[in-house]
């Protein structure tokens, strides 16, 4: 039933070309990114290494004390496989210092704080290394809002934001990412035993089939039902997209002048590049 089959050679060329062109045109030769041990950041680091040469890519693994030790081992494995620079910056001290003040904080607050802690480290590395921060959110996560605003969603350039998780798997296989990283269950690794699919309540493959038809092909609700999707599932996903839309936009600015940023003051980001 999959409608998500893509030409991996073409996709690889486009994404590698994207990183090369968009990084170099701003007069920079390096990138940095967080390497979690999961598949999304593994794919991005492979793409970056091919685009800019591994010597120009700096991957940072940022574990918290509850992170699965396997994650760091996988991050190291991936970094070694594509020969990029690799360092480990644990976030336990910073995160714990904060939650000593708020010991009752729940998992969501703690998870968001961790994601944002990592973001500050990456942007500090951006200044340290004169490197752009690469994002690693895929299209599935971005559409579902399954990410932390100003945390893992923050970046300068995101090579994989227009490909679904299913396609991330396909491209990862095509690019030779170590099998254990491809085969393991996706997890935000915020607490022990967490998996994305359990938390979301559906599988990525399932939701990607729906998202592709709903978003890319613009099928209507009756058409989706005729294609075999359950009404309740369609409604849940539609609501998730709608309710997370704020995460995909710049902060809303109160318009008072004749020319407001991003409303009637419109320029491409690549202005002058």
């Amino acid at each position: 039933m999959s409608a998500l089959h893509a030409n991996m050679e073409l996709l690889r060329k486009l994404l590698v070309g994207f990183v090369r062109d968009e990084v170099r045109k701003v007069g920079i030769s390096k990138v940095t990114l967080g390497l979690s041990g999961g598949i999304d950041s593994a794919l991005v680091v492979f793409i970056a290494a091919e685009a800019l040469g591994p010597e120009n890519v700096h991957a940072v693994c940022m574990p918290y004390k509850t992170s699965n030790p396997e994650s760091e081992a996988h991050a190291r494995l991936v970094a070694t496989a594509c020969s990029v620079n690799f360092s480990v910056v644990p976030i336990t001290a910073m995160v714990d210092a904060y939650f000593d003040i708020f010991p009752d904080a729940d998992n969501m607050r703690r998870g968001n704080k961790m994601a944002r802690e990592r973001m500050t480290i990456l942007f500090d590395h951006s200044a340290l290394l004169r490197a752009l921060v690469l994002g690693t959110s895929n299209k599935t996560e971005l559409l579902l809002g399954y990410g932390t605003l100003y945390g893992d969603m923050a970046s300068a350039l995101n090579p994989i934001g227009d490909i679904y998780k299913t396609q991330v798997w396909q491209l990862s296989t095509a690019m030779g990412i170590p099998a254990e990283v491809i085969e393991k269950k996706p997890s935000a690794d915020l607490w022990a035993g967490q998996t994305d699919e359990e938390e979301l309540g559906f599988s990525y493959r399932q939701v990607d089939e729906l998202l592709y038809r709903m978003v890319d092909q613009r099928l209507t609700r009756p058409e989706l039902i005729a294609a075999g999707f359950e009404g309740a599932f369609i409604d849940t996903i539609y609501a998730k997209i709608q309710n997370s839309h704020f995460k995909r936009r710049l902060p809303v600015i109160a318009k008072v002048s004749n020319r407001t940023i991003d409303r009637d003051f419109r320029y491409a980001r690549d202005w002058g590049k």
Binding site: L14, F18, D21, A268
Partner: peptide
Amino acid sequence: VGFEDGVN
């Protein structure tokens, strides 16, 4: 050819 804001 080239890219502008991620468009190839």
